[in-house]
């Protein structure tokens, strides 16, 4: 894998595209074998054929990442995600069974510092599983996620939710971002107020 910016853009996009297709192909073959429950030559062959057909008829959108997977970031993200999933579940479960309590909510727009497709998609996906937040709408051009916040108690809670989304974005970029993207997220301005 070459560092971004060392190849001409056109060529880099094409090789990046091939690399993405190849990675997707590998995952599909693996999933096929797991579905059958065992790794045999027959399953491998079937997986190669099925994955080829799937990628041919349902091509992936050109979402690519030029960074690299950081193991340390992945560990931090993973452990934090498990903790937050448990906290979120406990929180929602508690207010679900609390008698006579009607939670108030809000919809806030959060502008991500790094509005790439991959970052938008991953942040949107994960923030639905961590405490308080649920994705409602994505403004892809502006890089804004519209987030539903459950159980709001005053304006300070909304500022906390915004900060949480930005912290989540940073943890994701620390797993998959390139060095330049990481700098952008670490030093980029955080909008206190929307937009």
């Amino acid at each position: 894998m070459t560092a971004p910016g060392t190849e001409p853009p056109a060529r880099r996009t094409r090789t990046g595209r091939w690399r993405d297709q190849l990675i997707a192909y590998g995952w599909l073959v693996l999933a096929w074998n797991l579905f059958w429950g065992e790794f045999t030559w027959g399953n491998l062959l079937g997986g190669l054929l099925t994955a080829g057909v799937v990628l041919l008829f349902f091509p992936l959108p050109p979402v690519t990442f030029h960074g690299r997977l950081r193991l340390r970031g992945l560990l931090v993200f993973g452990s934090r995600f498990v903790v937050e999933l448990v906290r979120a579940s406990a929180h929602v479960a508690r207010i679900a069974v609390q008698p006579g309590y009607t939670p108030r909510s809000a919809i806030i727009g959060v502008r991500l510092r790094l509005p790439t497709d991959l970052n938008l998609a991953l942040t949107a996906e994960v923030l639905s599983l961590v405490p308080g937040t649920l994705i409602v709408e994505v403004d892809r051009d502006a890089g804004i996620l519209y987030v539903h916040v459950l159980d709001v108690r005053g304006p300070a809670a909304l500022a906390t939710s915004r900060a949480q989304v930005h912290a989540l974005e940073r943890r994701i970029v620390e797993v998959i971002g390139s060095n330049a993207e990481l700098r952008q997220v670490r030093t980029g301005p955080v909008d206190k107020e929307f937009p």
Binding site: L85, V86, A88, S89, A90, H91, V92, A93, I95, A96, V97, T102, P103, S105, I107, S128, L129, P131, L134, V136, H148, L150
Partner: peptide, 25 residues
């Protein structure tokens, strides 16, 4: 708890919170 949340929460968006977090875990 997720099922109770889906049943008791006041609107669709709140219900989706119950359908994601406790349900997934």
């Amino acid at each position: 708890a997720a099922a109770i949340g889906v049943l008791r929460f006041p609107d669709t968006l709140s219900r989706m919170h119950a359908a994601t977090k406790p349900q997934v875990l």
